[in-house]
């Protein structure tokens, strides 16, 4: 991995973090004093991925135009890392006509066909769809791959196991990425999942399974590179479980009283850790840290401004787009 790769990954993580942090601010800004989930410029549930940037950035660094991703209800980091336009995505989150889906989808239902990106609010149900995209790539004779992302809680869904079996039996170019952030909303992994590592489950389907510890973007990069190369070469699916960190609540408004290790989350934040590691390697200076942050601030501010200044849809537009 070269210096430029490392800097690009750091930059992408900072960009995503700035996005999630600003969306959190904006989301809460107009929901007080009586907090109401349906109020404000960004209504509805909001699942932010701060802390999980290494998963998205390490995987997406290997993807090229035309590769597909299906993400779950917590999708922003994978969307941004997979080239989804920040302005259009933000406008969608604000429910505006300039949004990716003209305000029909919202933050859990982002569709960007240009980048073959989609997400679903139903956990594990994006996996079969990714298998179908991979099937299409295979049938068309391309070397494109599909990445199916889900949380560790979703690995107990039938759709997860059906998809692993289907991908294996048809040798599909799919990479299953499990983001293990320790918590399925409020239920810890050891209370819900038999076996400590979902990577072990891959063996049951005859595919490689790797678990990446420590929320380390470079380790994710290595594991994902091997899996994606394998899929592109026609050698079939792989599974990667990434032990990551949910820095914020399951959704905004989640007080996380169930979470005994909450006090230590900031110590485990992967971004300052990676910055320190890169500084130690001599590839990142204080000036660069400042300028990368400033660029991210400006890009995110511009996207939020774009969203806020975009028109809202007319009520009658609700009746459009049921059928093509």
């Amino acid at each position: 991995m070269g210096e430029l790769d490392r800097l690009a990954m750091y930059q992408q993580m900072v960009r995503i973090r700035q996005y999630e942090s600003r969306i959190m601010q904006e989301y809460h800004a107009d929901k007080s004093p009586a907090w109401d989930i349906g109020a404000g410029l960004i209504p509805g549930e909001m699942h932010l991925a701060a802390g999980q940037e290494p998963a998205a950035v390490g995987v997406c660094a290997h993807l090229k135009k035309g590769d597909a991703i299906t993400a779950p209800h917590r999708p922003h980091h994978f969307a941004l890392a997979h080239r989804v336009d920040m302005n259009k995505m933000t406008a969608e989150i604000y429910g505006r006509t300039t949004g990716l889906c003209k305000g029909k989808g919202g933050h859990m239902h982002l569709f960007d066909p240009e980048n073959h990106f989609s997400c679903s609010g139903i956990i594990a149900q994006g996996l079969p769809v990714a298998c179908g995209q991979a099937m299409a790539f295979q049938r068309k004779g391309t070397d494109h791959v599909a990445v199916a992302v889900t949380g560790e809680g979703a690995a107990n869904q039938g759709a997860f196991h059906e998809s692993l079996n289907l991908a294996a039996v048809w040798n599909l170019p799919v990479i299953f990425v499990i983001e293990d952030n320790d918590w399925a909303i409020s239920v810890p992994k050891d209370a819900s999942t038999a076996g400590a590592s979902n990577a072990d489950r891959a063996a049951g389907y005859g595919m490689p399974g790797v678990r990446v510890e420590d929320n380390d973007v470079e380790a994710v990069y290595e594991a994902a590179g091997a899996a994606i190369d394998r899929a592109r070469a026609g050698d079939g699916p792989s599974l990667i479980e990434i032990h990551t960190l949910r820095l914020f609540g399951h959704f905004e408004g989640d007080a996380q009283a169930y979470r005994p290790e909450l006090e230590t989350v900031n110590e485990r934040d992967p971004i300052p850790q990676y910055a320190a590691a890169l500084q130690e390697l001599g590839v990142l200076s204080e000036d660069q840290i400042a300028s990368i942050q400033a660029d991210a601030d400006a890009e995110v501010d511009a996207a939020i401004e774009f969203a806020k200044s975009s028109p809202e849809p007319a009520p009658e537009d609700a009746l459009l787009h049921v059928f093509a």
Binding site: P113, Q125, P128, V129, A130, M135, A136, E162, L166
Partner: peptide, 21 residues
């Protein structure tokens, strides 16, 4: 012929259709 796995293969149909098949 598919496995007995309706969520899997109906979902795969959706993914294939989304990609233009």
């Amino acid at each position: 012929d598919t496995p007995i796995s309706e969520t899997g293969f109906i979902g795969a149909g959706i993914g294939a259709a989304v990609e233009g098949l």
